[in-house]
Amino acid sequence: MNYSQYVVHSPQNLNEALGILKEKASEIRLISGGTDVMVLIKDNIIKEKELLNLSFLNELRYIHEEGNTIKIGALITYKELEKSKVVNLNAPILVDASKTIGAAQIQNLGTLAGNLGNASPAGDSIPPLYVLNASVKLQSADSERVVPVSEFFLGPRKTKRAPNELITEIAIEKTKPGLYYFFKKLGLREANAISLVSVACIADLDQYKKVNSIKLALGAVAPTVMFAVKSEKLATDKQLDLNLVDEIARSVSEEISPITDIRGSAEYRRRAAYGLVYEGLYEVLMGTAKRVSGSFEGVY
């Protein structure tokens, strides 16, 4: 481990950071919470020799409520999401997912923006962001644009972020009160395990459990997190019963395109996806699934 080979830039504000990024672009590696990059440094498998330490950009440490949207600054950690009242009330699926990421130590360090930037197909915060209609704000010294999270990823470790751009904010839509939601994942250990499959779901059902609309996003089963579009269509406007639960779960397991890797086989992932979706929808059917409480108090 030769730590001396790295030059670390630690800008004190966003303008300074964007200036450095403009100059260095792809020669510099971004580091925020450090939970991914420090492991690469330890293993000496990082090609950039300059690091842009984002941890002092305190202006990106905020959670703002704006009408039907919640804006989350890039430095917000999982722990801060878990503690945020506005997120708990209006986007609880993101809280549930955050609580499963790594362990307490990781949740205290890791950031939501970092999970997006790292672009692992198994990033556990990403399926919830899909179903929350999230968008990613990318800023450079000369420009600013917003990309829907479902279009942000191009493949494993590949995103639409240009080398001179920084993720500065993530915006999520508030979930309507009363909607059902669940986040479920399967890993080889309860804590600190990379997911084999993860599922995020938000479902709008009427009082007789007819599906008005449903969103289903899955992680670790395709090159990027994906919506189970066919399965969503299959479920819409149908009466939820045990048959439909089975049908949707089966459809999801067929719609995904998992690979075999060190953590599990493709076939295992298909079965696990079936199981997780079945379990989640069964709880919705039985009325034991969680529902969004929702509130607009404006106090965090």
């Binding site: 450090g34 130590q105 990781i106 205290n108 600190n192």
Partner: peptide, 22 residues
């Protein structure tokens, strides 16, 4: 690599794995 917790310290009162902090 942040997986075993043996290096945990308190940073501003919160537990963090010190191997992952520059």
């Amino acid at each position: 690599a942040g997986e075993c917790g043996a290096c945990t310290v308190l940073m501003d009162g919160e537990a963090v794995t010190s191997c992952l902090v520059m």
